[in-house]
Amino acid sequence: MLQAIWDNIKGLYSLLVGMSITGRYLLSPVETIHYPRQVVADEIMASFRGPIQLTKGKKDPAQTRCISCQMCVKACPGHCLSVTKGDTKAPAQWLYDFSYCCLCGACVETCPTGALEFSHKVYLVTLTREELILDLLADLQKRAAILPESQPVPTANLAPPTVPDVESIGEPK
């Protein structure tokens, strides 16, 4: 009986300990990042592997290094790539269906010319599934048009205006 009473008193004390812990956190500042107004630091985002993109060419940034060898298309477990060969080695069309992509990196690692890389787009949101079929050549042109030292130009679909330029952190150092 006495033992039970003593146990209950100890139990009540443990409840007080719990309340003091939550009470302390109640008064401490919040931990979360409030998304549209704040974003995750670039440093954290830089290692994130988002949807793939074509790397910029060595001489002309708008020129892809892809030679349409179809290695990536064969390697892809999700069958989400389609590369159409043009008149020359360079591809005429480079479509990438992100809705099927599992971000495994098979394409990036098989590419013999290093024409593919992971982007760091975290804020990729679309309203329809069709918008997830990305035209990587057009994307490359768009990125090449932005000079590295210029101010970030936010793209309408990819990120809200306050997001810092995710391109700038994706460049190989």
Binding site: T22, Y25, L26, L27, S28, P29, V30, E31, T32, H34
Partner: peptide, 13 residues
């Protein structure tokens, strides 16, 4: 709000 602050998030905002 109290639940939010205890759980270190802002709650309704």
């Amino acid at each position: 709000k109290v639940a939010g602050f205890i759980q270190r998030r802002p709650g309704p905002y």
